[in-house]
């Protein structure tokens, strides 16, 4: 959901109570923030030209806020659908990693593992951590259920409610995009390696904007990870 891949060290996580209800309870405060996120996504998706149902469908199928915002911001800037999907998919690439670490908790036949894997988002994964280092399956499912309802429901409220707003620019809504991404970037600015990568990504994107089609500078900024990897 948020781009913040919270990865608490297992040793620092206190013993947690297991069960669906415990997971739902633990994630409730985050679900409030997610609802605010979904509400703004619904509003901004409309101003980017999506229909209300398309906005809700995206929250229901992608279920990852930062990638959704990235994709619609490329569309809003006049980028192509292919570039928009690419930008969102790159932001979601971290879920390949998070999915691997959650894999031991997702037992069962392949079809069930496939379905359970969809429930792994940053917040449900974080809440499900136990002192043994393997996420608790029931906490994960309980938390993901609350997050999903909150994410999709709030998107619907934002998307269908926006019919009232005629000029999103007069309200400064286009400036909400960079501010939102800045807020998601915050935890990465606190560590030298991720800060270096962020600065390099920004420089690459700005430098390419005058010479590349809309959205492409964002994809190209992925090249900044090479700087972070090459440094000790």
């Amino acid at each position: 959901m948020s781009a913040v891949d919270i990865v608490p060290a297992p040793a620092m996580v206190p013993t947690v109570r297991r069960g669906y209800g415990e997971g739902a309870r633990a994630v409730a405060p985050m679900a409030l923030a997610i609802a605010a996120f979904g509400l703004s996504f619904g509003v901004l998706a409309r101003s980017a030209g999506l229909s209300p149902w398309a906005a809700v469908a995206m929250s229901a199928t992608t279920f990852a806020g930062s990638a959704q915002f990235a994709a619609i911001s490329v569309l809003a800037a006049g980028g192509s659908a292919v570039v928009a999907v690419g930008a969102g998919a790159l932001l979601n690439a971290r879920y390949a990693v998070i999915g691997l670490s959650a894999a031991p908790a997702l037992r069962g036949p392949a079809w069930l593992r496939f379905l359970l894997a969809q429930l792994v988002v940053d917040e449900s994964w974080a809440v499900a951590q136990t002192s043994e280092g393997v996420p608790d399956r029931e906490r994960l499912i309980g938390a993901a259920f609350v997050l999903y309802v909150s994410h999709v429901g709030s998107t619907a409220v934002g998307a269908f409610g926006l019919g009232l707003l005629t000029n999103p620019k007069a309200l400064g809504l286009d400036a909400a995009f960079p501010a939102l991404f800045l807020a998601l970037l915050r935890p990465y600015l606190l560590h030298r390696r991720t800060l270096t990568v962020a600065v390099a990504g920004a420089v690459l994107a700005l430098g390419l904007t005058p010479v590349a089609p809309p959205g492409v500078p964002i994809l190209a900024a992925a090249g900044a990870v090479l700087i972070g990897v090459s440094r000790p």
Binding site: F69, P217, I218, V225
Partner: peptide, 21 residues
């Protein structure tokens, strides 16, 4: 390692392109 660093690179690119593009 590179996959983990994708988020800061892309988010920073989004901030500047959305603000100045």
């Amino acid at each position: 390692a590179p996959v983990r660093l994708l988020a800061p690179a892309l988010l920073a690119a989004l901030v500047v392109t959305q603000a100045f593009g």
